[in-house]
Design a protein around this nucleic acid. Structure first.
Length: 189
DNA sequence: CCCTGATTCGC
DNA sequence: GCGAATCAGG
């Protein structure tokens, strides 16, 4: 496998989306995460997009406007047919299954966003925007199983972000899920 | 042990 | 340029 234009493009896209190297490698196929990381470095896009927080005091400022006006229709015949079967992602094509969730099902954890670290909450709200919004069937041992929304509505999904090694939730949700049992000190009768 | 990215270095 | 091996974490 060589780094064709398309593959590099996908690499950039996914890396930009915050996908992990292994995920990207898996998606691309034919490469290992090491290859992906190596390529990422060679492409010079090692650091990820830091939208809000984490303002690193970088001594080196890279304004690099990169006035790339190079549009490439690229009719160029590839030296290699690349892959005859693109099939970027074989999605399970879920049959339009209707909401079967009646209602009023016990909403999991969903701690009464109340006594939780304001920071943790803010963080959750942050990452929930980036959530994969997975359905129940799409959850794996590696996806955050934090439920969002009302199960009785279409607005229900699971976080789906990469879990914190070993735990059922992503880092942010672990933060609100596993409170150091306190806040509600048992009232000393 | 699972995972992550970073770096090195022979190819 | 490439990526396996290795390193350094979480």
């Amino acid at each position: 496998m060589s780094w064709t234009d398309e593959r590099v493009e996908l690499l950039k896209k996914m890396w930009g989306e915050g996908q992990s190297a292994s995920q990207i490698a898996k998606e691309l196929g034919g490469v290992t995460r090491n290859a992906v990381i190596g390529k990422v470095h060679r492409l010079g896009l090692s650091n990820r997009a830091t939208g809000a927080s984490s303002a690193k005091a970088e001594p080196k400022e890279k304004p690099a406007p990169a006035p790339k006006a190079a549009a490439k229709p690229k009719p160029a015949p590839k030296t290699e047919p690349a892959r005859p079967a693109p099939a970027p992602a074989a999605k399970p094509a879920i049959p339009a299954r209707r909401q079967i969730i009646p209602a009023g099902q016990p909403l999991p954890p969903q701690p009464s966003a109340n006594e939780i670290s304001p920071e943790a909450l803010a963080k959750v709200n942050e990452i929930e925007k980036k959530a994969k919004k997975l359905t129940l069937m799409e959850l794996t041992e590696k996806t955050c199983k934090w439920p969002v929304g009302d199960p009785a509505t279409e607005d229900f999904w699971f976080c789906g972000l990469p879990v914190e090694a070993g735990k059922p939730y992503c880092e942010a949700h672990v933060g609100v899920a596993f409170q150091p049992m306190s806040s509600r000190r048992d009232r000393r009768r």
